[in-house]
C-alpha cells in the first residue's frame, strides 16, 4: 500500500502487529505503521468500529463518487 503521508510504498502485511505483538494474540494492533515515516494507518480489517464508522460516513451507494459517463 501507499503511505498517505510520505507516499512511500510498502507491504502492509509486514507492518501490522498481528503476528508480532505478544499482546495482540487475540486480534492484534488495529494500526499499520509506515516503516518510512512512522505514520499510523487504521487497518480496517481489524477494527470493527472504524469499519462501521467509515460505512456510516461513506455509505456504499454514496453519490459523492461520480459514475463514469461513457
Amino acid at each position: 500500500m501507499l503511505c498517505p503521508l510520505c507516499g512511500c510504498e510498502f507491504d502492509e502485511t509486514d507492518h501490522s502487529c498481528l503476528s508480532e505483538c505478544p499482546m495482540a494474540a487475540i486480534q492484534g494492533c488495529n494500526l499499520i505503521c509506515c516503516p518510512n515515516c512512522g505514520y499510523q494507518m487504521v487497518d480496517e480489517s481489524k477494527s470493527g468500529a472504524a469499519k462501521l464508522l467509515r460505512r456510516l460516513l461513506h455509505p456504499p451507494g454514496d453519490p459523492g463518487k461520480k459514475e463514469p459517463t461513457p
Binding site: 510520505c6 512511500c8 494492533c29 494500526l31 499510523q40 487504521v42 470493527g48 472504524a50 460516513l57
Partner: peptide, 24 residues
Amino acid sequence: LELPPIRRPQLVNIVIKTVARLEW
C-alpha cells in the same frame, strides 16, 4: 528521512483513527 509535506489534517481521518485507537 524522506520528509512528507506539511498539510492540513482531514477531520474524517482523525475521527476514524481516534475511534480505532480507542477500540484498541
